[in-house]
Amino acid sequence: MELAEKPHLRYQKKNSYTKMAGPKSSFLNLILALGSVTLLSAFSLGYVYEWTLEPIATAKREKQLRAINAVVEFDNDPLAEAFSVLDGRRVEDDPNALVFYPAKKAGNIESYAVKTYSDQGYSGRIEVMVGLKLDGMIREVQILTHRETPGLGSKISAPEFLEQFVNKYPDKFNLKVTKDGGQVDGISGATISSRAVGEAVQVAYDQLQIIKENE
């Protein structure tokens, strides 16, 4: 689109582009123009924000519920009854706390979904959701977030690796990797990541034992 094709446009009257545009560049005009653009943008964004508030909350909730649903069965609302635990004590909103989601059937707690983690991953924290029955048996293990190397450490999310935890009792099944004398079959080339997952599960189990004793 060559400019010459559009003689009706205002700026064609003067050759220099910078001199054309609209109103004069008085200080008041500058403030007025930028101010009204910004205000208009802020108000319309406020509107969009209100509008998306609910979908965003629903999306977050559904994501959490899906993760819990993958490791335990329940007919209550585990999110509403969730509580955080740090070193065996209940705490409020601590980034280092484990989150316990009670999974009830007909009003009785049958198991817990525990959001646990390990900071011993290859590239930082690995977040794990563990489903634990009240007697300590592991129901399911799911990886929530990790930043492990794609293709190596990232295999901790694969069912082939996570299956080995299912239906095991951590008091009999040593959650260390075989390399460290435990019973967890580490992923070849990703011992550190495998070790971290075992550790995260162990922490969840230990904290559950303390909670049970205290109650």
Binding site: T38, S41, A42, L45, G46, Y49
Partner: peptide, 12 residues
């Protein structure tokens, strides 16, 4: 409570 204006505010 207007953290959704983060991008606009930051770039300005």
């Amino acid at each position: 409570g207007i953290t959704y204006l983060q991008t606009v505010a930051y770039i300005l």
